[in-house]
Amino acid sequence: MFENMDSKSLCLEFRPRKACFSKAQVLWRGFALNGLLSATQPQVDLSQEDLTELLFDLYGTLELVELSELYQAVLKEPSLQQKIDWPQFFRNQGLQYNMRLVDLLKVLTDLPTTFKNWAFEKKVSANDLMPLISLKDPSGFTQICEVIAERRLTRSEGKKAIDLLVDLFLMGKTARELMPLDESSWIDQLSSLRYPQTKKRDQQQANTQNQWPDFVQVQSLRQGDRRIHRMQIHYFDDSDLSEKLRRLKTPMES
């Protein structure tokens, strides 16, 4: 059953980023499905198996970036592509097969490797990256994607940044204008660019806040669709607290 790899075998050009389940080369109708792993491994021919299920058995659940790479690899091999039940393939991966997903997988293919590594590491979902499908020409976005990876944003920061960046990019901002200015929060910087009127209004309202006593620190923050105020009071004991609360009720006197 196990043989050396036939020199005539074709290889599916896909290498998962984590270990493949099979230690043998799995052949399916002349294709080494995991042929890129090693040419010296023994072979097992599973041509009688259903290809869709075989891919899942072989690779298990894949991250989105891997799915993009596998999908592109299969598209290059028409004889394999025809035998895959794509809706079932994606169902096995916990995803719903639809054109939006397919469009996203195609966009992902052309993005820089550093970004794909980041997306793999942070286990980003299709939903996190979906704004990217609005880009008619993702190549202009490459430099921005590299910054996302370099700054090692968390998954939620990355999701937020991508949404803001795609908006701003489509609004005509150049990649250069969207680069981080300094080490402070890039997302805050992008938010100010994306929401200029709200930012201005928040600032105006913060400037017109009541004059608070010097023992409190009041910070104005945006929480969803609201602007909220966070107040910090330092006190020594209960009587100090009572006194400060009393003064707070009449801040103008303080």
Binding site: P131, I133, V166
Partner: peptide
Amino acid sequence: KNIMRERFAM
């Protein structure tokens, strides 16, 4: 937002 952006850009 994704589909609106896809259909109507910005």
